[in-house]
Simulated scan of single mutants.
Amino acid sequence: MNYSIKPEALSNKTILITGSGDGIGKQLALDCAKQGATVILLGRTVAKLEAVYDQIISNNGPEPAIVPLDLQGATGKHYLDMANTIEDQFGALDGLVLNAGILGTLRPFAQIPEDEWQEVMQINLHSQFLMLKALLPVLNKAQSASVVFTSSGVGKKGRAYWGCYSVSKFASEGMMQILADEYANSTIRFNSINPGPTQSKLRTRAYPAEDSNSIKAPADIMTPYLYLLADESIGVNGQYIEAQK
C-alpha cells in the first residue's frame, strides 16, 4: 500500500486523538498539527495535554483543543456532551484515532481478577463503544471522515498470559470490521493499525527488561496513521495495517 501524502494533507481537518498526552498519541497529535490539522487532545492528565498543546503552539500549528476525560469513569452522557461541544465549535469531526488503552497484568487466564478484567474492557473497548455512538453523527457531517482503531498482534492471534488485553483487542478489531461493513457506502471509513513494538509505557510494562533503543520510536511509525487520516486513503475501508511492515 502506498502511504504517500501531500504536504499540509490534513489542512482544515479536525481530528480527535485519545491518549494524546504521551507516547504514540502525543507524537501523532504533533504530526497531525504539522500537517495542518486542528487536533482535539483527549486524555486523563491535564498537565500532559497542556504540554502537548504548548508544543503545537510553539511549532506554529493550529490551536488545539483539550478534553480532559478519564475513560474508566466516563459515561454515555460525558461522550454526548463532548460530541455536542465538538459539533458546536467545529461543525464536524474529520478524524478519530482510538489510541488510548491499558495492558492490565500479564498472568494466567484463571488468575485474572474480575475488577482487572472490567477495567481493561472498560478502557480498551466499552469506552470506544460509547464514544463512537456519540461521535458517529458528528463524523457523518464531515465531507470525508476517518476512524482509526489501534490493534495488536495479540488481537489477531491469542497469546498465553495476555488475557484481558488480547481479548479487548480481538473485540476492538471486530468492532472496526462491523462498522466498516455497515458504513461501506457512507463518507466514513474505518480501519485499524497495529503499531508493532514501539517505545511506550505499555510496551515497557509488558517487556520491562527490553532495551527501548532496540525498537521503533513513535515518530518512526507515523506515516500509516497520517495516510489513513488524509484524503489519499478515501476508499480504504475495513483494513488491518501493520505499521512496521
Results as ranks from 00 to 15, higher is better:
Y3W: 10
I5G: 03
A9Q: 11
L16N: 02
D22N: 14
G23W: 02
G25A: 01
K26I: 00
Q27A: 07
A29Q: 12
L30A: 06
A33Q: 05
Q35C: 11
K48N: 14
A51S: 15
V52A: 01
D54S: 15
Q55N: 11
I56N: 11
I56S: 09
I56Q: 06
N59R: 10
G61P: 09
E63G: 03
A65V: 04
Q72C: 03
K77M: 08
M82Q: 08
T85M: 13
I86D: 01
A92I: 01
A92T: 09
D94M: 03
G95E: 04
V97E: 03
A100D: 00
G101Y: 01
E114M: 13
V120G: 01
V120R: 01
N124H: 06
Q128K: 13
L132G: 07
L135M: 14
P137G: 04
K141R: 15
K141M: 04
Q143V: 06
Q143F: 04
S144L: 10
S152A: 13
G153M: 05
V154K: 13
K156V: 11
K156I: 13
K157Y: 05
W162Q: 12
Y165F: 12
V167T: 15
S168V: 06
F170G: 03
F170N: 02
G174S: 11
L179M: 12
E182H: 13
N185M: 09
F190D: 05
G196L: 06
Q199W: 09
S200H: 08
R203M: 08
A209N: 15
S214I: 04
D220Q: 15
P224A: 04
P224C: 00
Y227M: 03
S233A: 14
K245G: 09
